[in-house]
């Protein structure tokens, strides 16, 4: 397995939306490299013909009926909002595409 570079940490931080400081990049690169190096052992079983387990218990088909339940009031919904306007969550300009 390849080691984790500073650039890779920067890429991961971008994907995860973390504005890491330059010193953090180095710090984390070393630590993540250690951890990945240690846990990479799991790939020993990569070739084995074993089904993966994503859920600890074998439950299936847990569903609810299509029945309306009470919603929060808009006041409750917005109660934690850092900013609001016109009963909506107010956020800075979205750098979308156009």
């Amino acid at each position: 397995m390849p080691g984790i570079t500073r650039e890779e940490v920067a890429h991961l931080a971008r994907l995860a939306r973390l504005e890491l400081k330059p010193e953090e990049l180095d710090h984390f690169a070393g630590q993540l490299d250690d951890i990945i190096g240690a846990v990479a052992r799991v790939s020993e079983v990569a070739d084995q013909d074993v089904p993966p387990t994503s859920h600890p218990l074998p439950l299936t088909n847990v569903m609810r009926a299509d029945e309306v339940r009470p919603s929060l009031t808009p006041e409750q919904a917005l109660s934690g909002a850092p900013a609001q306007e016109q009963q909506r969550f107010k956020v800075p300009q979205i750098l979308g595409e156009e």
């Binding site: 306007e85 016109q86 009963q87 909506r88 969550f89 107010k90 956020v91 800075p92 300009q93 979205i94 750098l95 979308g96 595409e97 156009e98």
Partner: peptide
């Protein structure tokens, strides 16, 4: 979006 000062989410 272009030139907007902020956005409101519903």
């Amino acid at each position: 979006i272009h030139g907007a000062s902020h956005s409101l989410l519903d």
